[in-house]
């Protein structure tokens, strides 16, 4: 650099935004609480063995409704909220917030990268869960002696519908998680408990709304019974995306005006 280079701005690396998304996709735990890899492997193997033994012993018994297995992911929307909020809070907890916030990128890109990476991570988790449950479902049907293309197809379709609904709801939960994390890192953090009240109200308010609006329909009975989503759910999903956009706009506004790294 010569003495006349003061005005020369270094070139920005190409594709910075996508590079940041790729960086943010990685799940980073809190420093010092990471389980060693071999322990994680041991727990995963133990969980798999317990699951397979349970399915092998209980699967042939016909008294449980296989399609209902999909609904164990009922809490996943809250997990997605945790994924996005954690991605932001961990920048502070792990001491990397200074690097993150001083990047030569506008605040909206920093926020959006967190939201997009959280969505991709959520999709990966949903897809992994779908694959695992599909395999376990097929195994159960084989054990029961009822495996055929129609039953399996219906089982897979049921899972696809349910997971599709969860994926549809994910943008709002992710955006809300982003908003909560940024709010709690800002000088406006006294409003954070209020936001928890809002999400709690939304969560419990959604059931009577779903019932009254006929979002779901039950077809058939017994082993062939299936709960399907009706078109009435789509306006609600679209509405949740509008809310997600509002949450992201608010997050960006907070980042610009109320997040002071010294206070967060």
């Amino acid at each position: 650099m010569t003495t006349n280079d003061w005005q020369v701005e270094p070139a920005r690396p190409p594709g910075m935004f996508w590079a940041l998304i790729r960086h943010d996709i990685k799940l980073r735990r809190r420093r010092g609480v990471v389980l060693p890899r071999r322990w994680r492997m041991a727990y995963a193997i133990a969980a798999f063995v317990i699951l397979m033994v349970s399915v092998t012993l209980e699967g042939p018994k016909a008294h449980f409704y296989l399609n209902a297995v999909w609904y164990f992911t009922f809490g996943y929307p809250f997990m997605t909220l945790g994924i996005s909020a954690g991605r932001i809070k961990r920048e502070w907890r792990n001491g990397t917030s200074g690097w993150w916030m001083s990047l030569s990128m506008p605040r909206w890109q920093l926020v959006l990268a967190k939201a997009i990476s959280s969505f991709i991570r959520a999709l990966m988790i949903y897809a992994g869960t779908y694959l695992a449950v599909s395999i376990l479902g097929a195994y159960t049907l084989v054990l029961r002696g009822t495996f055929n293309a129609q039953t399996m197809g219906q089982f897979l379709l049921q899972g696809l519908e349910w997971n599709g609904l969860l994926v549809g709801a994910a943008p709002f939960m992710i955006a809300f998680g982003v908003l909560l994390a940024i709010l709690s890192s800002s000088s406006a953090r006294p409003l954070a408990p209020l936001m928890w009240v809002v999400i709690g109200g939304l969560w419990w308010g959604i059931f009577p709304i779903a019932g009254a609006s006929n979002w779901f329909a039950v077809h058939g009975s017994g082993q062939s019974a299936a709960i399907t989503i009706t078109p009435a759910v789509f306006p609600a999903i679209f509405g949740s995306w509008v809310l997600a956009s509002i949450c992201l706009f608010l997050s960006i506004y907070l980042m610009r005006r109320f997040v002071d790294i010294s206070q967060a």
Binding site: T96, G98, L103
Partner: peptide, 27 residues
């Protein structure tokens, strides 16, 4: 900028940190 009391991303190797910097830090 080297922030005060900063830490680095625990999962990064030195080389990974350099490639991170190459894609996100101008110059």
């Amino acid at each position: 900028y080297l922030p005060d009391r900063a830490r680095w991303y625990a999962d990064h190797t030195v080389m990974r940190a350099f490639t991170w910097a190459q894609s996100l830090l101008p110059g």
